[in-house]
Amino acid sequence: MNKSRNYRAWLYLAPVLILMGVFTFFPLINTIVISFLRDYNVTTGANKGFTFFNYGVVLGILEKNEGSGFTDNSFISWNSPSALSNTLLITFVTVPISIIISLVIAIEINNIKVLKKFFQTVFFMPYVTNIIAVGLVFSVMFSDGGIFNRLFKLMFNSSISISEGSTSWGASMLVLCLYVIWTALPYKILIFLSGLQGIDKQYYQAAKIDGASRFKTSLRVTIPLLSPQILYITITSFIGAFKEYNAVIGLFNRSYTKDQNVHDLYTVVYYIYDKINGASFATEMQYASAAAVILFVIIMIFTLVQMRVSKKMVVY
């Protein structure tokens, strides 16, 4: 632990420190700074000083062009689907459902002996596939004449078509949630399975001797012993669902209804990227930054709350 080794360590770290300095730490601070600057100019960096104006615009409180009488409520709105409400809906629908489904599948896979490896592989396979490409497959299956839409019509006599022009917000959201759940399963199953394989078999034998049913064993033995993995998965999937974007792009490639004015399929991240898309990049960066900071804060709060709650719930 002499001085020469001390300095050599920084040489080893130099590449990563330079790269992360430029592409991680600087952007983090810079984005926060931009979110507080009035009329920020992307190319010159010119601005009119510190302000909360950008947050006011994003939250639909202030008018972007003062005196225009128009506030943008595509981020948050009380009477129509908005980026924030859609994101919250996606999160609170898909996270619990996908956790329960993957937990059941993992427990069942752990339960069997023959073909265990096979099922493990099968259920993990969707993990490596392309979200955009499979999103296109879903969009075809749920299109007007698509196989699932036909099935749905046959069963419920109504359409859940997500073809452009014939779509409703509800149908699109339903298909989106289905797709998000589908993409969320493999990783969760993998983590739960590795957790299950670490549980000592003696617990199960004890439960068996006590005459516990399989369901009761799962509920009273497996799930408590799996609580660290469940906590980890809950936190990461909340973060993941809050950042949902690729699934919307894969399925719809649009955030708006047919008249292209109402952004009823926005998510928070979709809102952010739309702001810097193409020409608007030069003038809207400060709003995108403000929205990104809001996203950051929401994720932090969620994570901290879950950590707090988990301290009482997790059994080690």
Partner: peptide
């Protein structure tokens, strides 16, 4: 370093896009 994994990548994407341009 580990803490940066918690930060949404969108924060970085915005500024990185400015840097690239």
């Amino acid at each position: 370093f580990l803490a940066t994994m918690m930060i949404p990548g969108e924060m970085m994407v915005l500024t990185n896009y400015i840097t690239m341009s």
